[in-house]
Design a protein around this nucleic acid. Sequence first.
DNA 1: TTCGTTCTAAATCTTTAGATTGATAAAATA
DNA 2: TATTTTATCAATCTAAAGATTTAGAACGAA
Lengths: 232, 232
Amino acid sequence: MREFKRKSRVLLVDDNADHLRGIKELVTLEGCYDVVGTTTSANVAINLIKKYRPDIVLMDINMPEKDGLQAIQEIEKLGLDTRVIALSGYDDADLIFRAMKIGAKGYVLKTMASAQLIYAIDEVAAGKVYLPSALSSRFFEYFQRSFKNEAVVSDEENLLTYLTSREEEVLELLTQGNNYKGIAGKLFISETTVKTHVNNIFQKLQVNDRTQAVLYAINNGFGNRKRSKVAV
Amino acid sequence: MREFKRKSRVLLVDDNADHLRGIKELVTLEGCYDVVGTTTSANVAINLIKKYRPDIVLMDINMPEKDGLQAIQEIEKLGLDTRVIALSGYDDADLIFRAMKIGAKGYVLKTMASAQLIYAIDEVAAGKVYLPSALSSRFFEYFQRSFKNEAVVSDEENLLTYLTSREEEVLELLTQGNNYKGIAGKLFISETTVKTHVNNIFQKLQVNDRTQAVLYAINNGFGNRKRSKVAV
DNA sequence: TTCGTTCTAAATCTTTAGATTGATAAAATA
DNA sequence: TATTTTATCAATCTAAAGATTTAGAACGAA
């Protein structure tokens, strides 16, 4: 499949010049890539990217001077079609998670076989996001751990379950920043009725004012359950 | 490697009885699994899990009566060592994301080759989290998209950047549900000073009351930036 | 020194929020 | 049928929130 496509244009970034040469040799030998540049500096890399618009950037993220993750973030902000693969010496779950979060399209360890790197480039060049199976597993462990606290909260202890549907409507509007008058207008009921509902909500959620009610709602999976938390 | 380990005990759940038989045959023929039970009902499945404590559960998540995702969530809440693999007919990114979020250790399409399913069981039984490469790619696209809005928000448009450090302290206490008196006590300043700060915060955030201020803070990356949003 | 910012504070005032009590009617449930 | 829950509304009252103005002290920058 690969031989039918135009050559992917690749930029290599690694603060270790020796390693940089090694990668260049490896990628060049493969034959189906144009290495448009190599650099040991993240800052230079960003300028090169603006100039040459490579398809793929292999970015070492364990660099002393400038953080590779930060560089990736800046590249993503440019809004180009350039896709970045993070190169790292560590399979640390937190590093992997952060890299993928900020938009890296792949994450490959330096210790992995060169065939693995080439495969990653191919996959990412084809528009996919690629994580080797071993790293993918680490990522998901981290990912699931970050949701576990939330799951505990959403137990039967959730006071929101005691609210009537009307009270939920009122709380929904409260969490949008409405005052009594606003809620009354939107629900076509009187302001005093709204006050009654709000007071009942306070009782059920065991809070003293609307701010606390809104905070409780947000922290306990209110808001169409469309919003969740991930520790980052 | 597989032949050195004890047989993994597997429970199969699928509302389609025919498909259930097919999977059972497939898994049984493999020889290194004990199928401890099969059922077409998610509710029955949960009871079976409590009784037999299987190592692996293959759970169809596209069932009419009870939602498979909900079943997985309930299983996770049991806190057992049972690891659930989601079986689905759809490679919908949202479905994959939700399944992994609630704790599924794998996600396999029914249309995939049987070898793929066996491989997934092996990986998950070995303690890993496994997503086939194609689904992993979809997951990450969804995952990264969910973080993109956040990145846009955290630009220079964030009104929070205009707050002084003292105002940030006050806002922080506001987002914890404190009233004027509480904030005054905690910052060792008078209540009127707090009011001044709060009023200045309102001006800068362009809101009218504390609830709106708190909502703005939460939705724009306040709170040590330890909390992020993922659309689920 | 002068200027701007920030933090502090008070006084005054209006508006909103919240507590409490009591009441009616429909709807669900026992 | 009797009872409970829910939704609606009113009146009253206190407490809290918020708007506005004014101003002193500290600090750093021009």
